[in-house]
Design a protein around this nucleic acid. Structure first.
Lengths: 147, 147
DNA sequence: GTGATATACTACCAACGCAGTAGGATTTCT
DNA sequence: AGAAATCCTACTGCGTTGGTAGTATATCAC
């Protein structure tokens, strides 16, 4: 039940773009520098965000990435879905059709309940919330638990 | 954010013992046979349950495992904690002291909220609930989504 | 049109966790 | 003594995680 660096860095990338990309593109180089993360690794992660349509890329000099929607229209669920994949603890929790025994399974309701409660949390937090929280804490964007 | 077979099989093992171990020990061989799972693999998992004090082992012929508490005193949280480890999506969610930046981290509250909501679900479901559900479904204990 | 700056794409790698498998040692009942 | 059970250590194939590296391609500024 762990969130990997893809999900965590994904949130930082998106928050960084939301803060620094008001009316322009933000380059990966700048993000990597500010966040102190490997540019090459971020490339893979932002690719996931791009494929999910959360950011759009602009190639060439002065290029970079920008959000495709406003920060309050992007939820933590969107970002984690793009970077982590489904947040369902087991596949049947998100799609009961995937398992023919769903109705007769003793534990399926547990996974469904967990999934619903996780979605309930992350679908209500928007990127705007993270941007606002970021402005209230000191150098917040660089700080993250490495464990 | 996935639950592994350790957690899933752990729940099946415990449910099986609760059902078939009314006033005796249940051997791993019997569990493995009923659940159609590898006895050797279950050995590792029941070891985790044993170390956490949820079951007690009896060695030698006619030995096996039995619960240390009644089914309604054992929660799904207990079982998943024993087999999966902490259900916290990141370490700081269960122990904010583990990260010196917890208070200044933009995302820490997300992980804490997820963790709390997951615990809220699994701490309220007891082994007794699973046993009761098992009696209402057909051959339920053998059925599980493999995906 | 030529650099400089950016993303895009492909490939590779070490380390780790998952899901088992294997085999022998030990304990206990009959 | 032998059968039945747990206990313990080790190994293994495979996929994921967390990157690194190099090249191709697109675009801007001059």
């Amino acid at each position: 039940m762990k969130i990997s660096t893809k999900g965590r860095y994904g949130l930082r990338i998106m928050t960084d773009i939301a803060i620094h990309g008001k009316d322009c593109c933000v380059s990966l180089k700048d993000i990597a520098e500010r966040e102190q993360l490997s540019e090459k690794y971020l490339e893979q992660i932002i690719n996931l965000l791009s494929k999910s349509g959360l950011v759009r890329s602009v190639r060439g000099a002065k290029g970079g990435y920008h959000l495709t929607r406003s920060a309050q229209e992007i939820t933590v669920e969107d970002i984690l879905n793009a970077t982590e994949g489904s947040l369902a603890p087991v596949a049947c929790a998100a799609d009961s059709d995937c398992c023919e025994y769903y109705c007769d399974c003793v534990t399926s309701f547990i996974w469904t309940e967990i999934y619903k409660s996780v979605i309930d949390v992350v679908s209500k937090i928007t990127l705007k919330d993270l941007v606002e929280k970021s402005s209230t804490v000191d150098k917040s964007i660089e700080l993250e638990c490495k464990k």
